[in-house]
């Protein structure tokens, strides 16, 4: 592919920073602020785009792990069946199709969500369930922080490793 996506992103960013931003009047504050944010988003996208499918695959795998843990607990039968059905769908999808992976990941998390949702008269949350979700979340939050680290909102942004480390073997 020539010009490739990196070159096109680089060209767009250069145009925005060197030509468009300086041409904006100083009193057009919203336009200036949003141009800076466009540059910020494009810079992050440039670092992320090659890894987007891999990230969604990892996210799906992690959600499948949690679903598997929950399926092994004594659950309400209808919800347990939904979970097993969603896991079966996840096992069959085309793993090279970003949209399919992303949608399956979201659908699976919705089933997990229904299972965890508080309902009137529920017994207190089981320790087993709590631990499973915390195990899942610890890994997910770490991954998300690294993925979004370049935005600089994270108080530990300077200590987070580069995005590529998420995909090292």
């Amino acid at each position: 592919m020539n010009p490739d996506l990196d070159l096109r992103l680089q060209s767009v960013m250069k145009s925005l920073s060197d030509v468009i931003l300086p041409a904006l009047p100083a009193d057009e504050r919203l336009a200036r602020e949003q141009t800076q944010l466009v540059l910020g988003h494009l810079d992050i996208i440039a670092r992320q785009w090659k890894h987007a499918l891999n990230l969604e695959l990892k996210n799906l795998a992690l959600a499948c792990e949690l679903a598997g843990d929950l399926a092994n607990m004594n659950l309400d039968s209808a919800l347990g069946d939904d979970l097993i059905a969603a896991l079966a769908v996840a096992a069959e999808i085309d793993r090279s199709d970003y949209d399919a992976v992303s949608q399956t990941h979201r659908a699976l998390k919705l089933v997990i969500d229904r299972l965890l949702a508080p309902r009137h008269g529920d017994e207190c949350l089981s320790r087993e369930m709590l631990d499973a979700v915390l195990r899942y979340n610890e890994r997910r939050a770490r991954r998300e922080r690294i993925w979004h680290g370049p935005a600089g909102l994270d108080p530990d942004a300077s200590r987070l490793p580069p995005i590529a480390t998420l995909f090292e073997p």
């Binding site: 944010l37 979340n137 909102l153 994270d154």
Partner: peptide, 24 residues
């Protein structure tokens, strides 16, 4: 009027997820 700012703010949710995890 500033969808771009809102999507930028969404980057912060991972920090709160980690914090919530630690607090729990």
């Amino acid at each position: 009027h500033q969808d771009l700012v809102l999507t930028w703010m969404a980057f912060g949710s991972a920090v709160f997820m980690a914090e919530l995890d630690e607090l729990l």
